[in-house]
C-alpha cells in the first residue's frame, strides 16, 4: 500500500513538472474534487453497511472523542517542541500544528491573518503531514495498533486518508477515524487563529 501511494505521487510530480500542458492547473481542482467525491461515496457505502460497527460506536459513547483529543494534544505539543528546536516563536509553531494536516485551509488562513511566509510554511508542513500519514498508516496498522494508525492523519482521516485507514484496519476503526477527522477539521478554523494571536 505504501508503494502504491509513493508511486502515485511520483507519477503526479513527474506529470505536473514535465508532461502536463500549461493551463491544466485549473482542471486539477475539478479532478481532485470529483475523485474525492467518488471515493468518499464508496467509503460511505462501506461504512454504512457495517451496521454492527455503528451499534458498537453507540456503546463506546464519549470514549470515541478521546482519539481527536489526544491527536490534538499530541499535534500541538509536537509542533511546539519542533518550534523550540527550530527557534520559532510558540504562536507560529502551535498555529501551524493546529492545521492537523488540512494544508489548504491552514495555509490560506495564516497567509491572510498573519504572514505569507508562515502561510507557506503551514501549507508545506501540513502537506508533509498528509504524505507522512499516507506512508505511516499501513505500517502503524500492521506493527503498532489500529488506533495509532488513525493518529497521523489528523483532520484528513475523514476524507483523503479515510479509504486507506478503512482498508488497513477494520470498520470500527474507520468509524472512529471519520469522527476523529470531523472533530479535528472543525477545530482547525478555530484553533489556528487562536494560537497565532497568542
Amino acid at each position: 500500500m505504501t508503494w502504491f501511494v509513493l508511486i502515485a505521487i511520483v507519477v503526479g510530480v513527474v506529470f505536473g513538472k514535465w508532461v502536463m500542458p500549461a493551463g491544466w492547473e485549473a482542471h486539477l481542482d475539478v479532478i481532485t474534487s470529483a475523485a474525492l467525491c467518488i471515493m468518499l461515496f464508496g467509503v460511505g457505502i462501506d461504512i454504512g453497511s457495517q451496521r454492527e460497527a455503528w451499534s458498537r460506536l453507540w456503546k463506546m459513547g464519549l470514549k470515541v472523542f478521546l482519539v481527536p483529543l489526544m491527536v490534538c494534544i499530541g499535534s500541538l505539543g509536537g509542533a511546539a517542541l519542533a518550534g523550540i528546536a527550530l527557534g520559532m516563536p510558540f504562536n507560529e509553531s502551535a498555529a501551524i500544528g493546529a492545521g492537523f494536516g488540512w494544508y489548504s485551509l491552514s495555509g490560506v488562513l495564516l497567509a491572510k491573518i498573519y504572514s505569507v511566509e508562515i502561510g507557506a510554511l503551514a501549507f508545506l508542513t501540513n502537506v508533509s503531514r498528509e504524505l507522512m500519514a499516507f506512508l505511516l498508516i499501513p505500517l502503524l496498522a500492521a506493527r503498532v495498533g489500529k488506533m495509532a494508525a488513525v493518529a497521523p492523519g489528523g483532520a484528513t482521516t475523514m476524507d483523503t486518508t479515510l479509504p486507506l485507514i478503512a482498508r488497513v484496519t477494520d470498520p470500527d476503526t474507520a468509524v472512529i477515524a471519520l469522527v476523529n477527522g470531523t472533530v479535528l477539521s472543525s477545530l482547525v478554523p478555530l484553533l489556528v487563529p487562536l494560537f497565532i494571536n497568542i
Partner: peptide, 11 residues
C-alpha cells in the same frame, strides 16, 4: 514532530 506527538498520545 506533530505526527510523532499524535501517535504517542493516542498510543
Amino acid at each position: 514532530f506533530a505526527v510523532a506527538g499524535s501517535i504517542l498520545a493516542v498510543h
